[in-house]
């Protein structure tokens, strides 16, 4: 490893840390109700982006995956059991893939 590469990696790590720490260090306590509501919606928006971004990279067998997501969504909605919902979702995908594979 050249020293140049070493320092670029260390510098990049420092820059990433500054980005990560910025929101923790900024002390925005004097928040208005609108700001409070804004922050309430941010995680919901970010989760939606994470789901959509991940799904756009997984277009293969999209119909099966959407069914699995819907089933997992139903399970978490009814039971509030996180682990159960994830296992149910992946289980549905495996079953659908197996049925689809044997039918094809």
């Amino acid at each position: 490893m050249t020293m140049d590469h070493f320092w670029i990696i260390v510098g990049a790590a420092l820059l990433v840390y500054i980005c990560r720490a910025s929101g923790f260090v900024l002390n925005l306590k004097a928040a208005s109700p609108v700001w409070e509501r804004f922050l309430h919606f941010v995680p919901i928006a970010i989760f939606s982006v994470l789901v959509v971004s991940a799904m756009t990279k997984q277009v293969e067998m999209l119909d099966f995956k959407l069914v699995a997501l819907a089933f997992a969504g139903f399970i978490i909605w009814r039971t509030r059991q996180f682990g159960l919902a994830v296992i149910a979702g992946i289980g549905v995908l495996w079953v659908l893939t197996a049925i689809g594979g044997s039918a094809g």
Partner: peptide, 11 residues
């Protein structure tokens, strides 16, 4: 995506 979706619905 499944984990993120489940966490989203729970919120």
């Amino acid at each position: 995506p499944l984990t993120f979706f489940v966490l989203l619905i729970s919120m």
